[in-house]
Write a protein that binds this DNA or RNA. Sequence first.
DNA 1: ATCACAGATGTAACCGTTTACATTGCTTTC
DNA 2: GAAAGCAATGTAAACGGTTACATCTGTGAT
Lengths: 329, 329
Amino acid sequence: MATIRDVARLAGVSVATVSRVINKTDFVNPETAAQVLKAIEQLQYEPNAVARGLAGKKMGIIALILPDILNPFFPALARGVEDEAQKKGLTVILGNSDDLGLKESTYIKDLKKKYVDGFIFASNTIREEDVESLRKEGIPIVLLDRGLNTASCPVIRSNNRAGAKLAVQHLIERGCQKIAHIYGPQEFITARERLLGYEEVVGELEGYSPSLMVSGKFDIESGRQGVEHLLTRHPQIDGIFAGNDLMAIGALKALRERGILVPEQVKVCGFDGISLTEITEPELTTVAQPIYEMGGLAARILLNEIEGGGRENTIIELDVALIPRKSTR
Amino acid sequence: MATIRDVARLAGVSVATVSRVINKTDFVNPETAAQVLKAIEQLQYEPNAVARGLAGKKMGIIALILPDILNPFFPALARGVEDEAQKKGLTVILGNSDDLGLKESTYIKDLKKKYVDGFIFASNTIREEDVESLRKEGIPIVLLDRGLNTASCPVIRSNNRAGAKLAVQHLIERGCQKIAHIYGPQEFITARERLLGYEEVVGELEGYSPSLMVSGKFDIESGRQGVEHLLTRHPQIDGIFAGNDLMAIGALKALRERGILVPEQVKVCGFDGISLTEITEPELTTVAQPIYEMGGLAARILLNEIEGGGRENTIIELDVALIPRKSTR
DNA sequence: ATCACAGATGTAACCGTTTACATTGCTTTC
DNA sequence: GAAAGCAATGTAAACGGTTACATCTGTGAT
């Protein structure tokens, strides 16, 4: 591989001039520039990213840390991030944190050493101190679905509350009168907000009881268990709003096992809009987040910060959309 | 951040000695080493990975290039790779190639500049020349599911042929007599092998006709279309072996739409063992590949090559396992 | 006493960029 | 006609490690 010095030699200029031509960082006589360009072409020269990284403390890499790529929510997010990064010539490092603060801290420590340009965290466990320390060192970071209103960095999330209300209202419109909710872990702000949205709408219904809410863990199995608990307490429920699609799928399974027809006897609505909802039987009504777009947006905001742009610390709340399908027909 | 020179100064030794202590690359007097360690501790020193990378041409990063993380096959693979890499202190760059040779070449070009330690390609489109050029430059590479018997590098795949035979035999055991096959794109060796396995078993059956094979594209929609074609030609089929799980899911959908009962009237078997097969209705019988383990294995082999180990160019064929579920009961 | 050699460490070049500062040659200004 | 200013480019010091080679000491062999 040719180096910048080879180019300089061939073009009969100094390395500084070559660097200037490459980066357009300073004025260079057009004729000289042409010479340099010719030499670059001739030698098939490509700047070495690591040397650049060392000099500039930026490797042209962004880190995407998410709980688990196996969770069907995250591939779309990752793809959104990657496509956007790719467009701008950056690459993406992927890390699975399993929602473990320790793993996240480890990633931060390791990746700082590698001069990654910035971080995107889809995480509920990230520590405020970690965020702070990154900020202090001038390393941009974007958070997804994170609580802190005291945001010291940009946060992107969906309008979970409004989405939950959409879901419940939809169930009501479809004739449900006794609507249960399987909520997710309350340390996740998404789960809390969805629960609040549910309560807000359903609280006014007659015959409503707090025991219509059962907890789940955002996975299939707990959705199934949630339904079992619910049915023993409230055999007469006719609508279930699950805190996410996975739990809704679990709910579907449990209902089927018990011979309860969906949507005839009980209607089910999920949340997230992952692609799995299209392959269940019946297909699942859900409140869709623009997952792919969220990833793209996160990347764009991060890149903007990397390029020295905004330091806005905005909280961006994206709209969600109800997708009616067979499970609530 | 402290540098190696800070450590050297504090410990009263030269940077070379510090480097030796850190890397255990040479003998150092235990007392001196202790001094150095103390200084490291005191300064909270951590070697800069980029500087290291520049000097050693290795950034401690491996690249995983796959067609599309949105395809439910790949998250498990990615997770397998990441977990293994993580264990050895490496990080993973993720790239989506969309099975486009051009994108792959671009990744190679970009990532070479970043001194990634090695590549894992889950790809059918990678060009032989690209493989060669990497090899020539001494950059290790591992291929998944790639054809070339002229392997100039390690290749990992499942025993697709044997798996297909398992599937068809299973259908026969369950009483199927007219077994169709929806095969995947024949440029994929996996698809070819599975087709061969199918033919091998089914060719001996009486009433077998080549028109029982229809092509698909390894996605849900083409599985559905495949079934539609099949049913017009052969209304009496009672078993379908799909070339992968996604097409099997499409098949399930199409059958349901037509009111054909699975498994009562037609039994369906997929291939891959992705987690989606557990949430369909009925749950899908499939030939499972050890996807997560394949990822882990690929990473391990790659790391071994990176550390200067084998240059074995083995083709490793992993066993698959039939998982009988409701769709063939 | 001398030589060879091994143990322990230091020196400085190198990896391939970026960039602050210096230099050079002209033009402009009073 | 000297001072000032600007355009264009060069020089060399970073960035933070690794490592080939040099150096110095002490030891056993001859």
